[in-house]
């Protein structure tokens, strides 16, 4: 009997340990998406400057699937969101996305075989988690945390924390400053100019 019990105990322990120490569906979701991005970047068929457009198109689709743009925009504007009319909000979300694309696309396309490791998942609330990852380059490790929210059973990213700096919070500070003395229209105008000057 004792031996049965021991066997059962071992069985239970093994079952528990068969699950990875971290990583539920949210980690799965980001990890798969990141791997799809890496596959595109490593794709030998998509090498050279001529393939840049094709790569960009593919990455854009993945971005839309991975990020909750609405959540991202609302969180950067916080209460100021309510000062925007629905049309202004639509334009804001669109412009903000373009700003981000222009800023980060080249950085992503520059990718040269850095390693991406996912190692931890922290729960913020029932519907929100933080997925911890790091990019390992030859000279350093860059910690990147994806904050994810569950909506309609799908995990999407609403904030990215790079080296301790939350993007949402960073833009919040900048937008707050503009909106403290300016109107939503002025902010949109700043963004329109930013998108054009690139």
């Amino acid at each position: 009997m004792k031996k049965h019990l021991a066997g059962l105990c071992i069985l239970l322990i093994m079952l528990v340990s068969a699950f990875p120490a971290f990583g539920g569906p949210p980690t799965d979701a980001v990890e798969k998406t990141v791997n799809r991005v890496l596959d595109i970047l490593r794709d030998p068929k998509l090498k050279g400057p001529s393939a840049k457009q094709a790569k960009t198109e593919k990455l854009r689709l993945i971005y839309k699937d991975m990020f909750d743009e609405m959540e991202f925009s609302r969180r950067t504007l916080t209460r100021n969101w309510n000062k925007f009319t629905p049309d202004q909000r639509r334009e804001f979300v669109d412009l903000f996305e373009q700003v981000l694309e222009k800023a980060y696309l080249d950085k992503i396309l520059d990718y040269s075989n850095e390693k991406v490791v996912f190692y931890k998942e922290d729960k913020i609330s029932d519907k929100q988690v933080e997925v911890h990852s790091k990019i390992i380059t030859s000279s350093k490790e860059v910690p990147i945390v994806y904050r994810m929210i569950n909506k309609d059973d799908k995990w999407k990213v609403y904030d990215v924390v790079v080296e301790n700096v939350s993007l949402v919070q960073n833009y919040r500070t900048q937008f707050n400053d503009i909106l403290a003395s300016g109107t939503p229209e002025q902010l949109l105008d700043t963004l329109r100019k930013k998108v054009k000057t690139h």
């Binding site: 700003v99 800023a103 980060y104 950085k107 301790n164 960073n170 500070t173 900048q174 700043t190 963004l191």
Partner: peptide, 30 residues
């Protein structure tokens, strides 16, 4: 070893001065 970091930071920023100030405050606090 860090060429490009600053450039991408300011190209992503609406107001680079504020972006850096906020990044500095966040980084130190955490």
């Amino acid at each position: 070893l860090r060429i490009g970091d600053y450039e991408s930071l300011i190209s992503a920023a609406i107001d680079p001065y504020l972006a850096i100030r906020d990044a500095y405050a966040q980084y130190r606090a955490k």
